[in-house]
Design a protein around this nucleic acid. Structure first.
Length: 483
DNA sequence: TTTTGAGTTGTTCGA
DNA sequence: GTCGAACAACTCAAA
């Protein structure tokens, strides 16, 4: 074997150059490196990126391309079945190794195993590297050696374990393989073609890529972190990091986020509790991946067996009203519209809309998860599945069945001044605070003065809260009695 | 093996 | 308006 034969670095959900163990390792070997991204629309069982994710992917790949080119590298874009593409690239370049970051989705794990097997047969080294999580799922076990099913002891164990290794800054300069192999023109991939123009203003809201991720982190640690514990519950405040899409695409490593937050806490004892709270949110990302690794069925099937029998009963019309932000409950509609218009929804509101879909409308959580998958820029199989199952009650460590969010209470509690609702549901903006979350209770003269005719400008509620709540309790009760 | 304490995010009702 | 209890029963994790 030629010791100077090139290594293919196969980019996946790790679109960065810094603190990337596989790439660093490839560079450290002193062999030429070929950075490559493969769009694989056909991998079996794959959850292919949804519409919003494809928009992000387009811009993220462009950003990565730009960073690589400042270092003299060139990202090779290819489309097709991963194994076939890698084989082709190997025969073009004489590469003898393929390095990548590991993923945790069941289909991705299967693919990694197949590649390992097939490439080994050709005497090609195939190496997967950790680096997308703080704690690898198999490393964290309870005292019986089993995976955790409850967040709090899981996270306690993580915090007690050895710290994640600090981010590595690479010193060696890469020797990029030259000439760079032919690459697809990304515009031919049609990740986003601009029509309809639903993502028209997204570039003013988001900056996909490592630089944008760093800026989000810096802003957050410089300001909002100081009031994170309380502020993060209020969707009108910019108190959350909005790092989720960056983390999903691996543009910034969780270790970098972890160490930056820790440093902030150490520098200012006053915010160290807030920092811990923030770290535990990273912990939820870890926990979701831990669950998906050990219980791969959670993306498709209920974590709790008895929920297979749950009497889901929603109608397509109700699902559509929810998707379009036309349920007649302002906080729900505001969230669904924020999602559609920005590719994002505040976490507090995600819980409210998810509770509404599964409990008020009794629609299967999978319908909600599928909609989020297509519309969220940060759509992530582990987070999405475990989040929806948690709300629906079918998940690990699920909320009690009687915890049914009251959309009126949630709105008036967490959007006290109505700033969020008035922004996203402008047709009722002129209503006084008192009726903003429950326009159907406003007296006729108040409605008239605000220029609102229910059923014309804004829908009457599609379900009655009290009746829906009782129906949900009955449905969940039936599950208990049946088992 | 058995026991014990605890479990992200809430709501409603009645005092 | 505020406050505390009830809302079930179960599973998990650790002692």
């Amino acid at each position: 074997m030629n010791t100077m034969s090139p290594i293919i670095y196969w980019y996946r959900q790790d679109l960065r150059t810094e603190d990337l163990p596989g790439l660093r390792s490839a560079i450290a070997e002193g062999r030429p490196v070929i950075p490559c991204y493969i769009l694989d629309p056909q991998s079996p069982g794959q959850w292919a990126p949804g519409g919003a994710s494809r928009w992000w992917l387009l811009h993220s790949l462009n950003a990565l391309q730009e960073v690589l080119s400042t270092q003299g590298g060139h990202l090779v874009l290819r489309r097709g079945e991963a194994l076939a593409v890698l084989r082709q690239l190997i025969s073009e370049t004489g590469a003898t190794a393929v390095y990548c970051s590991r993923q945790y989705e069941p289909w991705a794990v299967t693919l990694e195993e197949q590649l390992h097997e097939s490439l080994s047969d050709q005497h090609i080294t195939f190496k997967r590297f950790a680096g997308s999580l703080l704690f690898e799922p198999e490393r964290i076990r309870n005292k019986s050696g089993q995976p955790f099913k409850v967040f709090t002891p899981f996270w306690r164990t993580c915090r007690a374990a050895a710290e994640p290794p600090p981010p590595q800054t690479s010193s060696a300069e890469a020797d990029w393989f030259s000439p760079s192999p032919a690459s697809d023109d990304i515009s031919e991939w049609r990740l986003y073609n601009g029509t309809p123009d639903w993502a028209g203003n997204w570039l003013s809201l988001w900056q996909p890529g490592a630089a944008g991720a760093r800026e989000k982190l810096r802003n957050f640690l410089g300001g909002a972190i100081a009031n994170y514990d309380e502020g993060r519950n209020h969707p009108a405040l910019a108190c959350t990091t909005r790092l989720s899409p960056h983390l999903h695409f691996g543009e910034i490593s969780p270790r970098e986020v972890w160490y930056a937050a820790r440093a902030r806490g150490n520098a200012d004892a006053g915010v160290s509790d807030q920092v811990d709270k923030f770290l535990s949110e990273l912990g939820w990302r870890e926990f979701s991946h831990h669950l998906m690794h050990h219980f791969p069925h959670i993306a498709e099937e209920p974590f709790k067996e008895q929920f297979r029998k749950f009497p889901w009963m929603g109608t397509p019309a109700a699902l559509q009203a929810w998707q379009r932000g036309q349920t007649g409950y302002p906080i729900v509609d505001a969230g669904m519209r924020e999602l559609w218009q920005t590719g994002f929804m505040h976490n507090r509101v995600r819980m409210v809309v998810a509770s509404f879909l599964t409990k008020h409308l009794l629609i299967h959580w999978r319908a909600g998860a599928n909609w989020f998958w297509d519309t969220l820029l940060d759509a992530d199989l582990a987070n999405n599945s475990s989040g929806w199952q948690w709300v629906a009650g079918s998940g690990a460590d699920a909320s009690p069945y009687f915890r049914i969010f009251n959309p009126v209470t949630q709105g008036s509690k967490f959007d006290r001044d109505g700033v969020y609702i008035r922004h996203w549901v402008p047709e009722i903006a002129a209503l006084p605070d008192r009726y903003l979350n429950c326009p159907w209770e406003a007296p006729p003269d108040v409605l008239a003065q605000a220029g609102v005719v229910l059923g014309q400008h804004y829908p009457a509620p599609i379900v009655d809260h009290k009746a829906a709540r009782e129906a949900a309790l009955a449905a969940y009760g039936s599950l208990r009695n049946a088992s």
